[in-house]
Amino acid sequence: MERDFTIVFMQTINQDIKTGQFHRAYLLYGEEDYLKLQYRDRLVRALTGGQESMNFSRMEGDDCDLKGLIDLAQTMPFFADHRCILIMESGFFNSSNDELAAYLETVPETAVLIFVEKAVRKSTRPFKAITKYGYACEFLKPDERTLMQWIGGRLSKEKKTMSPEAWREFFLRSGENMENMEREYEKLVTYCLDRERIELDDVRAITSRPLNNRVFDLIDAMARRDGKLLLEHYADMIAAKEPPLRILSLIERQFIQMLAVRQMSSDHLSDREIGQKIAVSPYIVGKIRRSSESYSQEQIRQLLADASDMEERIKTGKITDRLGVEVLMMRYAR
């Protein structure tokens, strides 16, 4: 439901851009950076034509100064309807800044403020003020259904379709990341330029697999007690210059997620509810659950303890990183 609210909020910004009737202040916040920055740039272009305009100003991080911001907003635009001021990661919405809250009520019609923040506190006065006198839009990570609709819409414009098997593999390889999915989509469409339908083999031939997905291969081989396949996957990752300690960290993360999925499943949460809590798709929740069935809860906890001990041995030089991770994995693939 929250993601549906996000779509409604984005439609409101689209309507503002279409009609040219802008709010005096916008707050774009949340964890989905790709969409957030897309809408930031769309607003800036609609207001000033781009960041090179003399009616555009930008502040970021420690350079965000409220007095300077107010002075800029009070300055009349040069032969234009609006002066656009972009404020990036100011932290203004993490505390009760009374001066900002009061100013948001009086921003002149000739200025539009665009705040872009990763995180905000909704209980603060500035947040309440911008929702009352401006417009706030939270950008949440989209679920699989939303991503499928997004890619499906783009494929329709290209007069192409994708088989269900191809979509599943594409979704897994993209890592549920919109920016990465955009890159992989462009590669895939170019590769299939002369064909209307994208098949599984096309996805496997041209798209990249992120490290997280390759770790699933390791975990699956461990769960099946297939030491030969496990070492093959590990060698491929080493050949791709993946650091062994990073691989170890992701293995630990997967087993921590196994414990979480088990606990929440026993509490009768659905895969969708579990996915929301651990920030993965329901499909990935299913993969984690299936892998966890090969180990008892005690074995998972012991593996996590052994992984922590192995990391200490590697960092103190008692064993090389590549050999240490291999020894740990093979211990649990027997």
Rank of each mutant, 00 (worst) to 15 (best):
I274F: 06
L303S: 08
S296W: 00
A305G: 01
Q254F: 15
Q297L: 14
I256Y: 14
Q257A: 04
M258T: 10
A307K: 10
S281L: 04
Y283L: 05
M264L: 15
Q263V: 03
I247M: 14
R301H: 08
D267Q: 09
R272N: 15
E252C: 15
A305W: 10
I247C: 01
A305M: 12
D267K: 01
L303E: 00
E242Q: 10
A307V: 11
I284V: 15
R272Q: 09
I274S: 01
D306E: 09
S291R: 08
V261M: 07
I278N: 04
I278E: 03
P244Y: 12
H268A: 15
S281W: 07
R262M: 11
P282F: 14
E298Q: 14
G275C: 13
I284A: 01
I288S: 00
E242F: 11
R262A: 04
E242S: 14
S270D: 14
L250H: 05
E298T: 13
D267R: 03
E252P: 07
I247D: 06
E273I: 04
S265D: 07
V261K: 02
L248F: 12
A305D: 14
A240Y: 01
L250G: 02
P244C: 03
R290V: 06
S291P: 01
I256S: 13
A307N: 07
R301W: 01
Y295F: 15
V280W: 08
H268Q: 13
I300L: 11
Q257P: 08
Q276H: 09
I288Q: 06
V285H: 01
Y295E: 02
E242M: 08
A279C: 02
E252T: 12
R290P: 06
R246C: 00
Q297K: 11
L245D: 00
I278T: 08
A260L: 12
G275T: 05
R289E: 12
E298C: 11
D271M: 03
A307F: 06
R289G: 10
G275F: 04
A305N: 08
I247R: 01
Y283F: 15
L304W: 09
Q263N: 14
S249A: 15
Q299V: 01
Y283S: 05
H268C: 12
V261F: 00
K241Y: 02
Q263T: 07
E293D: 11
I247N: 05
S296N: 07
S265G: 13
M258G: 05
S249F: 11
S296A: 09
L245A: 10
R262L: 09
P244R: 07
G275N: 08
I278F: 01
L304P: 03
K241F: 05
Q254W: 08
Q263K: 10
Y283C: 08
E293N: 01
I256T: 12
A240Q: 12
S292G: 13
G286M: 10
I247K: 04
A307C: 14
Q299Y: 04
V280P: 02
I288C: 09
E293H: 09
S296M: 06
D306I: 04
S266K: 12
R253V: 04
S270A: 07
D306C: 08
L269W: 02
P244E: 13
E252I: 03
E298L: 11
K277M: 11
